Simulated assay, not measured.
Amino acid sequence: MRNQRKIKILVILPFLSGEGGTETVVNEWISHFENSSNLEVKYLLPQGSMRDHWYPDSRSIKVFRFAQVFKNVRPVRNALGAIWLMFGILFTSADEVVCLSTKLIYEVAFLRKTFRKKFKIVSWIHFSLLHGQDINLNDLKKADYHLAISSGIQRQMHDIGINDSNIGVVWNPIAPSLNVIPEATNSPFKFIYIGRIFIDGQKNLRELVAGLSSLNKSTTRWTLDVFGDGPDMAEFKKLIAKKGIARQVIFHGWVKHPFDRIESADCLLLTSRYEGFVLVLGEAIARGVPVISSDCPTGPDDIVNDSNGYLYPPGDVQTLTAKMKSVIDNEKAFNHQKLPNTIVDFYPKSYFKRLEKYLFDFS
C-alpha cells in the first residue's frame, strides 16, 4: 500500500439483530482497525441494536441508546435515529462514510448536500440486491463507491448501471481455524446444516428435506445434524416426519458457536434460494468440511470449487440428491486436512489487504 495521509472512515450501521453474519464481519473490522496506522475507523449505531452484547466496548463505537429503548417501536426508533444521525453527519470529519443499507445511503446523501460536506459515500450491502429486504436500487446509486461482498452482487450492480470502476469486490473475511473437523468414521455418513429455519423462504429447507428423502431410496446410511432455530421449526419437524427421515435427523437448536460443538462431520449442506456471501460455507471449509450448496445468486460460486465441494442448480432436487450420494460413495475424495487451503483468499490477511486498497482508492 502506498504511503499517504491517514484516511478517516465513518461506518453507519442499520438496526441489527445482534446475532447475524453482518455483526461478525463488523467485529472483524473493529478488531483489525483498532490500532491501524493508515485508517481511522469509527462506527455509529443511530438506532442501537436489538441486542447490544455483540460489539466490544470501544471508543470507536457510538450507540444512540435512547433510540434502542424503543427497539420494538420501529417508527419511534427510526425518527430518533434519523435525528441523531443528522448530528453525527454534521460534526463528522470523515473522508468516507460507509453505509450498510440503502435507506442510510439516502439519508446520508441528503445530509451531505444539506451540510455541504465533501466526504465520499460508500455502500456496503450484505444481501443480494434483488432479494434483500428494504433495498432501494435508486438509493443505492446515490453512493459514490461500492464494496461488494460477492462477485454476484457486483454483477447485480453492473446490471443496474453502476460503473465497474466504482465497485470493489472484497468478499467477507473468514477466520482460519486451528482445528480440522475429522470425517465421521465407523458410523453413518454425517451431514450438517447450520442456519435459520425457513422452509420456503431464503433457506429453502423444503428442498433439503426433499433431497434427503430421495437419498433414502439409494441409501439410509446417513444422519443430519441441524444447528439453528427459526419461525418454521415446528413445520420443519412435521415435514421431516412426513417424509420418513425423522430418525436420521438430530436437532441441536440455536448454538452460539456450532462448529465448536461438532466432533466429526462429512459434509455441510445449504439449499438457499439466495444469499449475500454465505459465511457458513467458508467456516465449514476452513475447518476441513466439504460442502454441497445451491448455486444461488451471490455468494456460493465465489467460495465453492471442485477442491472443496459441489454446487447444484437451485430447485434441482435430482442433482442435489446425486451430489449427496457422490460424497457418501466417496466418488471424489476430499482431504479434510487440505480443504482449508482452498479459501486462503478469504482469510483476514488477504481480505484486509484487498479492503484497504479499495478504501484508499475511493478517497
Rank of each mutant, 00 (worst) to 15 (best):
S326W: 09
L355Y: 09
K142Q: 15
N78I: 14
Y358D: 05
S264M: 11
N3V: 14
K357D: 10
K242W: 02
R273N: 14
L178N: 13
P300S: 10
I12Q: 04
I292D: 02
L178Q: 12
L205R: 04
L90M: 13
V278W: 00
F64Q: 05
S187G: 10
F360Q: 11
I181T: 15
G299N: 02
G20P: 00
F110L: 15
D302A: 01
V304A: 03
F33E: 05
Q4K: 14
W84G: 09
V209L: 10
P313L: 07
D361Y: 13
F119A: 06
A286P: 07
F362L: 05
N27I: 10
A67W: 00
S272Q: 07
L13R: 07
G244P: 11
Y312R: 03
D302I: 01
F259H: 06
S177I: 02
S272C: 12
V108M: 10
V170H: 04
F87E: 14
I303H: 00
P258R: 08
I135R: 07
G81W: 07
V41C: 11
P340E: 04
N78Q: 15
S326Q: 13
I174T: 08
H32P: 04
R221T: 06
I199Q: 09
G161T: 12
K8W: 01
F277G: 02
F251E: 10
I167L: 02
R74W: 10
S151R: 13
N3F: 10
T342W: 05
L129H: 08
Q156A: 07
Y55I: 10
L44R: 12
I30W: 06
L39M: 13
S128K: 04
D361A: 12
G276R: 03
G201S: 15
G282V: 05
F236I: 03
T271A: 07
F66S: 00
H131D: 12
P182G: 14
I199K: 11
V255M: 10
F119E: 04
G168E: 07
D232W: 02
P297A: 11
R65H: 09
V169A: 00
D200M: 02
G288V: 06
A322S: 15
A286V: 08
G48Q: 01
E183T: 13
S264T: 15
H53G: 05
D200H: 12
G309P: 03
F198M: 08
L212V: 05
G195L: 08
F352A: 08
V11T: 07
P75A: 03
F251V: 09
F110S: 13
L279C: 04
A284I: 01
A265R: 01
L320K: 01
N72D: 09
D229S: 15
R5L: 09
K238M: 12
K113C: 00
I30Q: 09
T319E: 15
Y351P: 05
D159P: 01
P297L: 09
I125L: 12
L212F: 04
T271C: 12
L137W: 03
R74E: 13
Q156W: 01
D52E: 08
V304C: 02
G18A: 00
L45W: 09
S31W: 03
Q4V: 10
A94S: 14
R116F: 14
L239R: 11
L359S: 06
L140K: 03
S101W: 01
V291A: 05
D164N: 11
G132K: 06
A143G: 07
S93Q: 13
G228D: 11
E275D: 07
N172H: 13
Y55W: 09
Q318E: 15
V97K: 06
T342H: 06
D316G: 05
Q154K: 15
V97A: 13
